[in-house]
Design a binder for these strands. Sequence first.
DNA 1: TGTAAAAATGTAACGGATTACATCGGAGTA
DNA 2: TACTCCGATGTAATCCGTTACATTTTTACA
Lengths: 341, 341
Amino acid sequence: MSNIRAVADLAGVSVATVSRTLQQPDLVSPKTRAKVTSAINKLDYKPNLLAVKFRSGKTHNIVVLVPTVANVFFARVIRGMQDAAAAEGYALLLVNTMGDDDTEEKYARMVQTSQADGVVQLRAFNPFPEAPSDCDELLPMVNACETLDAPNCPTVSLDNRRAATAMTEHLIALGHSHIAMVKGPKHSPLTRERMMGFKDALRAANLQYCEELMFAGDFTLHSGYEAADRLLSQNYPISAVFCENDEMALGAICRFKEAGLRVPEDISVSGFDNIAFANYSDPPLTTIAQPAEEFGETAINLLIDVLKGKTKRAMKVILPFDLVTRKSTGPAPEKPVNFSS
Amino acid sequence: MSNIRAVADLAGVSVATVSRTLQQPDLVSPKTRAKVTSAINKLDYKPNLLAVKFRSGKTHNIVVLVPTVANVFFARVIRGMQDAAAAEGYALLLVNTMGDDDTEEKYARMVQTSQADGVVQLRAFNPFPEAPSDCDELLPMVNACETLDAPNCPTVSLDNRRAATAMTEHLIALGHSHIAMVKGPKHSPLTRERMMGFKDALRAANLQYCEELMFAGDFTLHSGYEAADRLLSQNYPISAVFCENDEMALGAICRFKEAGLRVPEDISVSGFDNIAFANYSDPPLTTIAQPAEEFGETAINLLIDVLKGKTKRAMKVILPFDLVTRKSTGPAPEKPVNFSS
DNA sequence: TGTAAAAATGTAACGGATTACATCGGAGTA
DNA sequence: TACTCCGATGTAATCCGTTACATTTTTACA
């Protein structure tokens, strides 16, 4: 691999001139510039960016911690991030962390070892354990989608609570009063917020919240299927199920159909996220649309502001949601089915 | 950020000793080692990996060019790659290229600019345009999933042709003789190979291949839906549709149901890939299972062999497939429906 | 105790590009 | 002609670890 000295020799100039030809061409006379350019081409010279980044201390890399790239919603967020990053000359290093704390810490350490300038974290976990969470200085990190409770880290999130309220109100308006919920992972803030919104709506409608109607899941198709299975074998009558994401809703619908139930005639099912499959399922899914690409764009732009020192305080951005009603929710049946009977 | 010299000063030793303490501790006496370690902790010293990599010329980074991380199949391949890479101490830099040639060339250039050691390419495109494709020297690249026709690049692929034959034979065995195909992108080798396999099976069964029954798609849900739409408005009778991936199959099923057709009673539909949704759709999808994680592992291991100079010739690995029969395919109806009539 | 061998540690060159500062030469002006 | 100024170019320090080689210390054994 040829280096800048080889180019300088061939062109009969100093290395400084070669560097300037590439970085600030207007400081170099046209004649010299031509000689250098020709030497560069002849040698097929490519600057060693590792050296450049080492010297300058700026990598223009951003590490993105993604719980699962398999999640269709995250895939959209990633697309948004890529556009924003490309526009600012940053490269994205995606890491599929499987939600593992150690993996996230390991990759976040790329910042401390000068391999990346900042981190976008899509999960509510602080991968910089030693960093003081009090407000001294901003972390080189932005948190998106799930809300991390850290005052020194900008955040982009949805108003999950209100969104869950809107969905629940939709179900209540259809006449449902026995509503179950399939929740996400226990420690996810998303789950907490969406559950609060769910309770808000129940309370406002004078409906009773019932712990037995809450079913655990983990955002996968399979866990939705299993939750529906447990739901079918318990004693409370239920006419609607609010799932905390689309994958679980689709898994649940699958199980209900196996049991001979019709969606939405016998039971209404709703999701959250509005993934592509939601529009092609049978029936198409009522869900909450999130501006996924915008999440990504906003996160990257916030991070770049932090990296450039433009921001002093950690911004908390909240993006709007949209209730998308399709065919998986409908009027409550006369009398909610009591499955186990 | 403290550096190795600061540590050396605090510990009262030379930088070489600090370096050795970290790299080859057994060359350092226990007493010195203790002093150095304590200094490292006191200063919270983290070696600048950019400097390390710059000096050593090895980055231990692998760039992975992924057409779309949104594709559920690729997500599984990525997981396999991560396991294999982690085991060998390599970090994966995932790039969502959107199948764009320029983006791929740009990121592949990370190898030439010393920012990465090698590339895994999941698409049939050579992102090193200037590299001679004749056999002189192996490219620092491995090609997986789609088969790139480059003699100097190791490849991991499925026997797509035989897999397509197996699927077609399955349909023929169910009595179908009017079989349509929803294809992938025109220039994808996958499409070419699967179509050849499709034709092989038709020929072997003395069935006529008919160009009018081939519908274009691009591997998205929507394109499957649209292909089904076109299929419904043409003149040939059809009793089965072989879709080149699961997303398109699910999109097609959606459209067929809208048209009031029953799957599989009126029309059988099959997919390819066996993504998670395939098992939770209505009806569950008959498809070809690919060992996705194994694709990833094999690709990484082949690449590391190349990077370490262990391999001289470009290996061509072919992984096995598995026909998974579910409920979306069934016996051919007495008389295939002619839709437009 | 002396000497050779082995172990521990230090010195300094090195990798590739950037950039502050130094130098040189030519244009412009009095 | 002499002097100033500016544009163009060169010199060399610098970023931070690694490592070949040199030097010092310790160990082992005659």
